[in-house]
Simulated assay, not measured.
Amino acid sequence: MQWTINGLVREAKVDFRTSLLDLLREQFQLSGTKKGCNQGACGACTVLVDGERINACLALAVQYQGREITTVEGLAEHGKLHPVQAAFVEHDGFQCGYCTPGQLCSAVGMIGELERDLPSAVTVDLAAGQIEWQRDELRERMSGNLCRCGAYNGIADAIAAVLAEELGEEIAR
Score class of each variant (00 low, 15 high):
Met142Val: 08
Ala127Arg: 07
Ala127His: 07
Gly144Ala: 06
Arg135Gly: 12
Gly144Asp: 13
Arg141Asn: 08
Asp136Trp: 02
Met142Lys: 01
Asn145Pro: 04
Ile155Thr: 04
Arg148Met: 03
Leu146Met: 06
Glu140Phe: 00
Asp136Glu: 14
Asp157Thr: 08
Gly150Phe: 01
Leu146Lys: 01
Ile159Phe: 08
Arg135Phe: 03
Gly154Pro: 02
Val122Tyr: 13
Ile131Gly: 02
Val124Arg: 14
Trp133Tyr: 14
Thr123Arg: 02
Arg141Lys: 12
Gly144Glu: 05
Leu138His: 08
Glu137Asn: 01
Tyr152Asn: 09
Val124Gly: 11
Gly129Pro: 01
Thr123Ile: 05
Arg135Met: 13
Ile159Leu: 15
Glu140Asn: 15
Val124Cys: 12
Cys149Ala: 13
Gly129Ile: 00
Thr123Met: 11
Ala151Ser: 13
Ile155Asp: 01
Gln134Arg: 15
Asp136Gln: 09
Asp125Ser: 13
Arg139Ile: 12
Asp136Asn: 12
Tyr152His: 07
Arg135Ile: 07
Ala121Met: 06
Trp133Met: 13
Val122Gly: 14
Glu137Lys: 07
Leu126Gln: 11
Ala158Gln: 06
Arg148Thr: 02
Arg141Leu: 06
Asp125Cys: 12
Gly154Gln: 02
Ala128Trp: 00
Arg135Cys: 05
Gly150Leu: 03
Ala127Lys: 11
Ala156Leu: 13
Ile155Leu: 05
Asn145Glu: 05
Ile131Gln: 07
Asn145Met: 05
Arg139Ala: 15
Ala156Pro: 00
Arg139Phe: 11
Gly150Met: 07
Glu132Gly: 10
Gln134Lys: 14
Ile159Val: 15
Gln130Pro: 00
Cys147Gln: 01
Ile155Gly: 03
Gly150Lys: 10
Gly150Ile: 00
Glu137Tyr: 04
Tyr152Pro: 09
Leu126Asn: 05
Asn153Ser: 15
Leu146Trp: 00
Ile155Val: 08
Ser143Phe: 10
Tyr152Lys: 08
Ala128Asn: 08
Ile131Thr: 14
Leu138Phe: 09
Gly154Ser: 06
Cys149His: 06
Glu137Met: 06
Tyr152Ser: 01
Asp125Leu: 03
Leu146Asp: 04
Ser143Val: 06
Cys149Gln: 10
Asp125Asn: 15
Gly144Lys: 04
Gly144Arg: 05
Gln130Thr: 12
Gln134Val: 15
Ala128Cys: 03
Gly129Thr: 04
Arg148Cys: 00
Gln130Ser: 11
Ile131Trp: 07
Ala128Ser: 12
Ser143Cys: 14
Gly129Gln: 10
Glu132Pro: 01
Gln134Tyr: 10
Tyr152Leu: 06
Asn153Thr: 13
Gln130Asp: 06
Asp157His: 07
Leu126Tyr: 04
Trp133Lys: 08
Cys147Thr: 01
Thr123Cys: 09
Asp157Glu: 12
Arg135Lys: 14
Gly129Phe: 04
Thr123Tyr: 06
Arg141Tyr: 02
Ala158Tyr: 05
Gln130Leu: 03
Arg141Trp: 03
